[in-house]
Simulated scan of single mutants.
Amino acid sequence: MVLHSADQYAEPPELWFAQGDVAIAAVVPGSAADRAGLMASDALVRIDDAPLASQSVVAGEPLRDTILAQIAGSDPATALRIGYRRDSRFASAVLDAQAGCRALVEVLVDGDRIARSDGRVIQISLAMMQLADDRQLAAIFAHELAHSVLEHRRRLEETGVRGGLIGQFGRHRRLGRIVEIEADRLSVHLLANAGYDPQIAPDFWEAEAGRRVSRGLFNGRRHPSRQERIALLEAEIAEHGLPQPGLSMPAQLLAARDLPFPSGEDQD
């Protein structure tokens, strides 16, 4: 099911959230939500035993993201219980959904060549999708997904950086470069594991699409330069002999999830 909340819109149509502030925008046919009888416009009231009204919202984030994080953090070994309101009547449903990737991907209709992740939600602008071909989009997505796999949001917040991956840029350039380099390195392993030639990652930055992107959002000291990215990606591919048989699990890089970021003030 696709969720949205009233605080994502400046002036949402009244009918969208007539039953509550977090509603179902759409239900995927044949999904666990569909089998449980949930429908578009149903308003979520409870997740398992916790009422939505009791959830603390992270500053700057829509309520929808808080609810998605709660659902993603539920026990995958047990069915998910959803309390919802339809036509002013309360009802409940049990979802027998299987555990899967918790990252949510959205396409933004506005924004100029944007690709970003806050550790939970990956957003790619329509302009970016029109600029890049399918292989280039795979390289972009692998980089953003790597932020989630490497738990950059949690690790930054534990360091005292609030606001996830987006809010920290500009205040902590040094940490920004660290997370970008880690995500670049892991991205080629994710591509190889998904059946792509990992070389499409450095090729993206060599291509016109990468050159145009590097002049926009990804330009600045908080990100490695385009040439730095190319060298880094190619070195990672060569060091691990990618692609290789079976899954590529770079132990040292994945182990970083359990290590704090280095302390110290940023240097200009």
Score class of each variant (00 low, 15 high):
Gly195Asp: 05
Leu254Thr: 09
Gly111Ile: 04
Asn193His: 06
Ile24Thr: 00
Arg154Leu: 12
Arg64Lys: 13
Ala103Thr: 13
Ile237Gly: 08
Pro29Met: 01
Ser41Pro: 04
Arg257Ile: 08
Arg85Ala: 09
Gly167Asp: 08
Ala32Pro: 02
Asn193Gln: 10
Arg153Met: 05
Leu68Glu: 14
Ile237His: 10
Gln55Ile: 14
Glu106Asp: 11
Arg211His: 14
Ala50Gln: 15
Ala50Met: 15
Val213Leu: 15
His240Phe: 14
Ser263Thr: 09
Val45Lys: 04
Ala138Trp: 01
Val58Gly: 08
Ile47Asp: 01
Pro62Val: 07
Asp96Lys: 00
Arg154Asp: 13
Ala115His: 03
Ala26Leu: 07
Val2Lys: 07
Val109Glu: 15
Gly210Leu: 07
Gly163Tyr: 06
Ala40His: 02
Asp118Tyr: 09
Met249Ile: 12
Val94Gln: 02
Val149Ile: 08
Ala183Ile: 04
Arg81Gly: 00
Val109Trp: 13
Asp110Lys: 12
Leu63Ser: 05
His147Asp: 02
Val105Leu: 13
Ala238Ser: 11
Ser187Glu: 07
Gly210Ile: 07
Ile82Phe: 00
His189Leu: 09
Ser187Thr: 03
Val57Pro: 09
Asp134Ser: 11
Gln98Ala: 15
Arg35Ser: 05
Gly210Ser: 09
Ala127Ser: 15
Met39Tyr: 08
Ala32Gly: 00
Ala251Tyr: 12
Val149Ala: 07
Ser117Gly: 02
Ala235Thr: 11
Asp258Ile: 07
Ala77Tyr: 01
Pro29Ala: 01
Asp7Leu: 06
Ile181Arg: 15
Ser248Asn: 11
Phe90Val: 10
Met249Gly: 05
Pro202Ser: 10
Val58Arg: 15
Leu131Lys: 02
Leu175Gln: 02
Gln227Lys: 13
Arg116Phe: 12
Ala72Thr: 03
Gln267Tyr: 13
Arg64Phe: 10
Tyr196Thr: 02
Glu239Gln: 14
Gly37Ser: 03
Arg257Asp: 06
Tyr9Leu: 15
Ala201Ile: 03
Pro260Cys: 03
Val58His: 11
Ile124Arg: 03
Val149Tyr: 08
